[in-house]
Simulated scan of single mutants.
Amino acid sequence: MPRVTIRLAILFLPLILTACASLLPRAHTSTVGPWQNYHEAQQAFGKIVPYQTTLEDLKTLRLDPASNPNITILNYSDVIRRFIPSPSVSAEDLAPGVRECILAKGACNGYEIVQQSSVRKRYGNFWSDFLNFKRKVEVTGWSFSGVILVRDNVVIYTLAGGQPAIYMLEESKNPLGPLQGSGESAFRNSISAP
Rank of each mutant, 00 (worst) to 15 (best):
T5G: 09
I166F: 01
E100D: 10
M1T: 13
V155I: 00
I102F: 03
N132M: 13
E100I: 05
N68T: 13
N70H: 11
A9W: 10
L169Y: 05
P50T: 04
G97I: 11
T60S: 12
G146C: 01
Y123V: 05
F45A: 01
T60D: 08
L23H: 01
I113L: 10
I156F: 01
N132P: 06
R188P: 04
G110M: 00
T54Q: 02
A44S: 05
Q42M: 06
A66C: 07
E92Y: 14
S90H: 13
E170S: 14
S190W: 06
Y111V: 05
R81V: 15
D78S: 11
P69W: 03
L103K: 08
W35A: 07
K47G: 02
I71Q: 04
I16R: 06
R3M: 13
W142D: 02
E92R: 13
Y157M: 07
M1I: 09
C101E: 05
E170K: 14
N125V: 14
Y157W: 10
Q116A: 15
D129I: 02
S172G: 12
E100Q: 09
I16A: 10
F187K: 09
Q180R: 04
L94E: 05
N132V: 12
I16V: 12
L13M: 11
G146T: 00
F187G: 06
E56W: 02
F12A: 14
A193L: 08
V49K: 04
P50W: 01
L61C: 07
R62E: 15
S77G: 07
D78P: 07
K105V: 05
A21S: 14
L149N: 01
G124R: 05
A44N: 02
Q36M: 06
G146D: 00
I148R: 00
L131C: 03
S185L: 08
I166D: 02
L15K: 03
L131E: 03
Y76W: 09
P69C: 04
V98Q: 05
F83R: 07
D78H: 09
N153C: 03
L149H: 00
S190Y: 08
K47R: 05
I84W: 08
V79S: 07
T29G: 11
L179S: 06
T54S: 09
L13R: 06
S145M: 06
K136Q: 14
R3Y: 11
V154G: 02
I148D: 00
T18R: 07
N37D: 09
K134L: 14
D152A: 12
A9I: 12
I10G: 10
A21D: 07
T29E: 12
A95D: 14
N189M: 08
C101A: 10
